[in-house]
């Protein structure tokens, strides 16, 4: 009976994701194209930052999704640990490279933006530093998945790492804040422009964020489907060897 349950859930997931995936992908492409086109071609320059504000349409959404991807991995890891739901563990695995890529995009665009604004590619600004640390956590998580052979053991170990890593990532965030204030007196450079951003920049930014969210969902669905198929493939090959 238990094998029925195990089999039924991935199967239902495959059916659902199969029908949803084309729509999500199409919508993601549409939102990304509209949002980035709107942002790149149709918005004015900022009076202070010139044309570099256009980087915001890449930087903010990717940074947002870099964190949200980790949170999603945390939730799916918890679901795996509590409910032993295989799709959940595989979804966490599928999300990690996507989150890592978004982190790289956020870091790269941040550095490119920092060059003209701060006069240097890299500042040990608390936010940038936290993202670098987040990227290290992604690397460790992915490496652990790759290193452990047995899929269930790997799922368990990476889930535990994800939980512990989340706590430490949060602690690092505050530690870094403390550390940089300790080094530089007064105002630190901040990327926090969301609060006082004008509508001209705000609406294309929203579309672009929606695009990144949908892109994330589409990629995670696609990659989870691959992981489920790979799992079934392994099981079938193992069964063939047994026979």
């Amino acid at each position: 009976m238990s094998s029925m349950w195990e089999y039924a859930n991935p199967k239902r997931f495959m059916q659902l994701s199969g029908t949803v995936l084309p729509w999500v992908s199409g919508l993601a492409a549409l939102c990304l194209i509209v949002g980035l086109y709107w942002g790149f071609f149709l918005t004015p320059d900022d009076f202070r930052q010139g044309s570099t504000v256009k980087i915001i349409y890449l930087h903010v959404p990717s940074a947002l999704m870099a964190i949200n991807a980790w949170i999603m991995m945390l939730v799916t890891s918890l679901v795996w640990l509590i409910r032993r739901h295989h799709v959940s563990a595989l979804a966490a695995r599928a999300a990690a490279p996507v989150g890592a890529t978004f982190t790289v995009i956020a870091l790269a665009t941040g550095a490119i933006w920092g060059q003209p604004m701060w006069g240097t590619w890299w500042v040990w600004d608390p936010r940038l530093t936290s993202f670098l640390i987040l990227f290290l956590f992604y690397l460790g998580y992915i490496a652990l998945w790759e290193a452990v052979e047995d899929p269930d053991t790997a799922a368990d170990l990476t889930s535990v790492l994800c939980l512990v890593g989340s706590v430490f990532a949060l602690m690092s965030r505050y530690a870094v804040l403390f550390w940089n204030q300790g080094l530089h007196q007064g105002a630190t450079l901040s990327l926090d422009k969301e609060e006082n951003i004008s509508d001209v920049f705000y609406f294309p930014l929203l579309v672009s964020i929606a695009g990144f969210v949908l892109l994330f969902v589409a990629l995670v669905l696609l990659r989870t489907r691959t992981e489920i198929r790979a799992r079934r493939l392994r099981a079938l090959i193992a069964r063939e060897r047994m026979a």
């Binding site: 640390i133 290290l136 956590f137 690397l139 460790g140 490496a143 652990l144 290193a147 790492l161 512990v164 890593g165 430490f168 990532a169 602690m171 690092s172 505050y174 530690a175 870094v176 403390f178 550390w179």
Partner: peptide, 16 residues
């Protein structure tokens, strides 16, 4: 792999 996993976890301790 151990180093890769542990070093990020060392960040807060090292900072303080």
């Amino acid at each position: 792999l151990l180093s890769l996993l542990v070093l990020p976890l060392y960040v807060p301790t090292l900072i303080f």
